[in-house]
Amino acid sequence: MTTGGRVVAVSRHEEYSFSKPNRASITLLPGLGVEGDVHAGRTIRHQFRMTYEPDLPNLRQVHLMHEELFDELALKGYRVSAGQLGENVTTRGVDLLGLPTGSLLHLGDGAVLEMTGLRNPCAKINDFRDGLLGEMFAIDPVSGDFTFRSGVMAVVRRGGTVRPGDPVEVELPAPPHHPLERV
């Protein structure tokens, strides 16, 4: 296990809304997500996808973003802070986008999240900040591969309480490792 990262902020919202207010803590529920959050549930809770895939398992129980992205965006004139892009957990010091599928994040008082994939950014990001959607994509200069930069999605494997300042420990799955893909 590797350590070094930390939780910067935690957020949840009871209703569908683009942004989520920061909280003093959140409670993660195994197999469901963030207690009291509109996206918690065993089956898909994403508003658009519920209309045509309502019975699929919810692989998007918890949305995480790295605060370093906000630093990059600020250099381009975009002011974004924790919770504003709809994430539940904002981290610093963890290469969330570089983790392989199945990685485990240990946070808080024993909570464990399993990384399921990349968040697919939606056009509502431009409603929040005009032009921001274009910053949520990246092309690898060497391979030419296209990827999303708007955070990662996870499921709750072990519940617990998570607060700002909590350490984040990463446990990689057994090889071979597979990169995160859109979920």
Rank of each mutant, 00 (worst) to 15 (best):
Ala82Met: 06
Gly159Trp: 03
Pro179Glu: 15
Arg12Ala: 11
Arg12His: 01
Val168Ser: 00
Lys20Met: 02
Phe148Arg: 09
Val89Asn: 08
Arg163Gly: 02
Gly151Tyr: 02
Tyr78Ile: 11
Arg12Glu: 00
Gly165Ile: 04
Val89Cys: 09
Glu114His: 09
Pro167His: 09
His46Asn: 13
Gly86Asn: 00
Leu99Ser: 02
Glu15Pro: 07
Val34Asn: 01
Ala82Val: 08
His106Glu: 07
Pro175Cys: 15
Val155Leu: 07
Gly33Phe: 01
Leu75Trp: 07
Arg149Pro: 14
Val62Phe: 04
Pro175Asn: 09
Ile125Gly: 07
Thr3Arg: 13
Gly98Tyr: 10
His177Gly: 15
Ala82Ile: 07
Gly41Arg: 06
Gln47His: 15
Thr43Tyr: 06
Val156Gly: 02
Thr101Ile: 07
Pro164Tyr: 01
Gly110Val: 06
Arg129His: 07
Asp95Ala: 12
Met50Tyr: 04
Thr2Tyr: 15
Leu99Cys: 01
Ser81Glu: 12
Tyr52Leu: 14
Arg92Asn: 09
Leu97Pro: 14
Pro121Lys: 04
Ser150Asn: 14
His66Ala: 10
Asn22Glu: 07
Gly108Ala: 05
Asp95Lys: 13
Tyr52Gly: 13
Thr90Cys: 11
Ala154Glu: 02
Asp109Ile: 06
Leu104His: 10
Leu133Gln: 14
Thr101Ala: 14
Asp145Leu: 13
Val89Ser: 09
Val80Ser: 03
Val142Asp: 13
Leu118Arg: 03
Phe128Trp: 01
Thr161Pro: 06
Cys122Ala: 15
Arg163His: 04
Gly117Thr: 09
Thr161Tyr: 04
Gly159Leu: 03
Leu32Phe: 04
Tyr16Thr: 12
Met115Tyr: 08
Glu135Trp: 05
Leu107Glu: 01
Pro176Tyr: 10
Asn120Ser: 11
Pro100Cys: 09
Asn120Glu: 14
Val170Lys: 12
Pro30Gly: 11
Leu64Phe: 14
Asp130Ser: 12
His66Arg: 15
Gly77Trp: 03
Ile125Thr: 12
Gly151Val: 05
Leu28Val: 02
Pro167Ala: 01
Asp55Ile: 10
Val112Lys: 00
Leu32Asp: 06
Phe148Asn: 10
Thr90Leu: 02
Leu56Trp: 15
Glu14Val: 12
Arg119Trp: 05
Arg23His: 12
Arg157Pro: 05
Gly110Asn: 09
Phe146Leu: 13
Gln61Asn: 06
Ala154Gln: 10
Asn22His: 09
Met153Thr: 04
Val168Ala: 03
Ala123Gly: 08
Gly4Arg: 06
Ser17Phe: 09
Gln61Lys: 12
Glu87Arg: 04
Gly36Trp: 02
Gly5Pro: 08
Tyr78Pro: 04
Arg6Val: 10
Gly36Tyr: 11
Glu67Thr: 13
Val183Trp: 00
Ser143Val: 11
Asn126Ser: 15
Leu69Cys: 05
Phe137Gln: 11
Arg6Leu: 08
Ser103Tyr: 00
Lys76Phe: 03
Pro100Asp: 07
Phe70Glu: 05
Gly33Glu: 04
Asn126Met: 05
Phe128Cys: 02
Gly31Thr: 02
Leu180Ile: 09
Thr2Glu: 13
Val112Cys: 15
Pro100Tyr: 01
Gly83Val: 02
Asp109Arg: 11
Ala174Thr: 12
Glu87Gly: 15
Pro121Gln: 03
Pro57Ile: 08
Gly159Ile: 10
Glu87His: 03
Leu69Ala: 08
Glu53Gln: 15
Ile26Val: 09
Asp127Gln: 13
